[in-house]
Amino acid sequence: MAKSVLIIEDEPFIIEALTFLLEREGLELSSYSDGEGCLDVISNIKPDLLILDMMLPNVSGMEILEKIRNSREFSALPVLMLTAKGQVRDREAAEDAGVNIFMTKPFANEEIISNVHKLLKN
């Protein structure tokens, strides 16, 4: 059974590119473009991996990450966080909140594919 990946990102073209790339790797892709209500989406889809943008409308990626880590059901969900804010303090804050991999935009396609496989393997 194909592993599933949920992308929470508000840039539609990034979602399209990632979806194309990761489907070619044999993964099942879903996406959602708002911070609000995404826990319900996660609960419905039950993904094996979450690709999460840090800056989202309404609720930030950091707040979502904290909620995930504090939840009983998804606390172990692997999270790959994407952000245009590449400052050291942002990375540290994300690591403190329990991110698995932190990637800054722009990134290379091979890099994100490699990181997705790494997280799914674990």
Binding site: E11, F13, I14, A17, L21, A108
Partner: peptide, 13 residues
């Protein structure tokens, strides 16, 4: 940076 990410990723594809 989001624009550049899209362009880079899409052009690469």
């Amino acid at each position: 940076l989001s624009n550049i990410t899209t362009i880079r990723s899409t052009a690469d594809i």
